[in-house]
């Protein structure tokens, strides 16, 4: 029984971190109807920046802060340099999509450059800052608790930002009708940049949390986890923030249960097994709405 509870706790903590990555896919998709395949690489980039700044002896917390800033700016720059010109030229959506795939490989390769990072795996500072503690028969590591609490707080802040602030209202307006958003006096390009910044920043935080839990990073660490989080976003209904949170939790818990009871090599496919099952039952995902209601 306590093994089950331990597995559930592990799954929920990981699931919240997945949710943090998933909302990045969801927000960008909501505004641009674009799957940002560079998002997984942003997650890796965020972890590497923490590693880099820690190696400069800046201390863990300042390193994480700097990484958040750098990753947000990188995401924003990717949009400005490679995606915005395509939108301006009204290029086909698939061109933007393959550009984000290309960007993810460029970032990944940057992270394996010799003399700076190399392609070797690296040790990452542990986020198990307060050791572990035992409740009943169940042992909880403080890195799990930190992962859960930080992700929960950030997701709450994001939800408030989108639903209660002026810039959030502008984001929702841009999601629904770009032309009308322009007519309201909203600087739509700024809203898009802001959304990319948020996506990059949250990916970096997730990168720090998950790497601090596993204590290892590698240049390709973002590709599988990026796809899992993308699945989580689709499972929850892409474009819907709380859907991404539920999707992340479902994927996190399912893969931990699978690893515990079916063997560790069943772990990674679980996200996609769940994706397929949910989409067969409900094609728009758990909370997704059908299309955009036309007025």
């Amino acid at each position: 029984m306590h093994a089950l509870i331990g597995t559930l706790i592990n799954g929920i903590a990981l699931g919240m971190a997945y949710a943090l990555i998933a909302v990045g896919y969801s927000m960008v998709f909501g505004i641009l109807r674009l799957i940002n395949f560079a998002h997984g690489a942003m997650y890796a980039f965020g972890a590497y920046m923490v590693y880099f700044f820690v190696s400069l002896k800046l201390g863990l917390l300042p390193a994480i802060m700097l990484s958040i800033l750098m990753s947000g700016i990188l995401a924003l720059l990717i949009d400005k340099v490679a995606l915005e010109p395509l939108r301006k030229k009204k290029s086909i959506p698939i061109a933007t999509l393959i550009t984000t795939v290309g960007m993810s490989f460029i970032i990944q390769n940057f992270l394996s450059i010799e003399y700076i990072f190399t392609s070797e795996k690296k040790g990452f500072p542990s986020l198990n800052l307060f050791g572990s503690f035992t409740v009943g028969n169940v042992t909880i590591q403080s890195s799990q608790l930190i992962m859960f609490v930080v992700a929960l707080i950030l997701l709450a802040i994001l939800t408030l930002l989108v639903n209660k602030t002026k810039i959030g209202l502008a984001m929702r307006a841009t999601e629904q009708n770009v032309k009308a958003a322009n007519l309201m006096g909203i600087n739509v390009n700024f809203i898009i940049s802001f959304t990319f910044f948020l996506g990059g920043a949250t990916a970096a935080i997730a990168g720090a949390l998950i790497s601090g839990y596993y204590q290892v990073i590698s240049p390709t660490m973002g590709s599988l986890i990026g796809l899992k989080a993308f699945s989580a976003a689709v499972v929850g209904g892409i474009g819907i923030l709380y859907g991404s949170v539920v999707g992340g939790l479902v994927v996190g818990v399912a893969e931990c249960l699978a690893a515990q009871y079916l063997g560790s090599n069943v772990r990674d496919p679980m996200a996609f097994v769940i994706l397929i099952i949910i989409l067969i039952i409900k094609p728009t995902g758990l909370f997704g709405k059908k299309g955009i209601s036309k007025v």
Partner: peptide, 10 residues
């Protein structure tokens, strides 16, 4: 605008 273009879900 023509066709109203209100934000339907807001």
């Amino acid at each position: 605008p023509e066709g109203r273009e209100v934000f339907p879900a807001l």
